[in-house]
Design a protein around this nucleic acid. Structure first.
Lengths: 85, 85
DNA sequence: TTATATTTGTCCGTATGTATG
DNA sequence: ACATACATACGGACAAATATA
């Protein structure tokens, strides 16, 4: 996993590409429920993007119900198995 | 490639001339599927035309199925090989 | 207690690109 | 050619809460 996975010229926005990669990590079991996902700073480092882009990706994951965020602590993988949506 | 390729006195509308040149770039492989075509601003600069003319050219390419446009991102070369039309 | 590092929250501004009038 | 608006992306800065030493 590196910045090489990100294509800035692709039709899909960068933040969505990052979100898709994190979702893949969740669904593959690499990221576990109630455990932290990489911090914004880590995503910045790992994908070579601006912090706002990393935040946008996490915000998207939160909107989609994949993660929940605890201020000043981090974002955690949500339990979607028992969720109605 | 420059403004010299455009003939304002020709029977063919300028936007169609520009579209033809972009189609030529697509068919020659210079522009690749799912990759961005030059932005409107770039076309304005390159062909020495008004922005609306550049937009008209892109709109024509879109109608003809040569490109698809993603709002706020850009226009991309479409994959016509597997298309029914 | 103090200090430092981490992490999210919230602003600022700049640039690009399309959408619309 | 101009103005406005929105979405995306980058860069920087500071605050607040938390964790650790």
């Amino acid at each position: 996993m590196a910045a090489s996975e990100i294509d800035h010229d692709a039709p899909t926005p960068v933040y969505r590409q990052i979100a898709a990669l994190i979702i893949a990590d969740i669904e593959s079991g690499l990221l576990v429920v109630n455990r932290k996902i990489p911090s914004e700073a880590a995503l910045v480092q790992r994908f070579g993007v601006a912090r706002e882009t990393a935040r946008h990706a996490v915000g998207y994951l939160r909107e989609e119900g994949y993660v929940f965020t605890v201020p000043q602590r981090g974002s955690y993988v949500a339990d979607r198995s028992a969720k109605s949506k």
